[in-house]
């Protein structure tokens, strides 16, 4: 089968293997390729082509899911560099960072307990701002300095922050639905 699984997501999309890739280029490449391989293009074709098309379309969707998310993209890039990002095997985080995280969580719990949408939204916005700065730094570490050790450490921190962010989102949703 010419379904070449050895090509990495960046190669598949014809993009440079960098963290800093404009979202529009990722979206554009995704649509160009999906337009070629999507099963809708092969609905009237033979069985072999329909099967190949589905495998390709699934593969392209998988690549897009990874590339469009900054965190998943960073993890993927670091894995391509042979780094082991796996959070469960290496969770020793700096004490200072863990303290910060605990403070964040306390603030979220407090806002949840007082059912304050405003407080949760403020936390959400503040965290988003912090993450944006961290992602900029991550881009610098990966693309320019090429310090993959430091980048891996930062990715682990960002995993914590993304999780916290989605928990704030869930808390907001729960309040809205009541």
């Amino acid at each position: 089968m010419a379904l070449d699984l050895s090509r990495n997501h960046f190669e598949l999309f014809g993009l440079p293997a960098r963290f800093d890739v404009p979202q529009a280029r990722i979206d554009g490449a995704y649509r160009e390729i999906q337009a070629q391989v999507h099963p809708d293009r092969f609905a009237h074709a033979g069985e072999a082509e329909r099967r190949v098309s589905m495998q390709w379309a699934a593969r392209v969707n998988e690549a897009y899911q990874t590339l469009k998310s900054p965190l998943k993209r960073a993890v993927y890039l670091l894995e391509l560099q042979g780094m082991d990002v796996g959070a469960e095997r290496n969770t020793a985080m700096p004490a200072e960072f863990l303290m910060e995280q605990m403070e964040w969580r306390e603030a979220v719990e407090e806002a949840e307990a007082s059912r304050s949408v405003d407080a949760l939204e403020a936390l959400h916005a503040r965290l988003r701002g912090e993450m944006r700065a961290q992602y900029a730094e991550l881009g610098r570490l990966i693309d320019e300095v090429r310090d993959f050790e430091a980048a891996t450490g930062l990715v682990r921190k960002l995993m914590f922050m993304e999780k916290l962010q989605s928990e704030i989102g869930d808390a907001l949703a729960a309040l809205e639905d009541d």
């Binding site: 089968m1 999309f13 072999a48 082509e49 190949v52």
Partner: peptide
């Protein structure tokens, strides 16, 4: 026929993707 043309279908798919990307550049 389906089985015998599977490899051909895969190569054609590969080509159309390469063309799409070339067009993009």
């Amino acid at each position: 026929v389906a089985k015998g043309t599977e490899e051909f279908a895969a190569r054609r798919m590969d080509r159309s993707i390469k063309r799409a990307l070339a067009g993009k550049k």
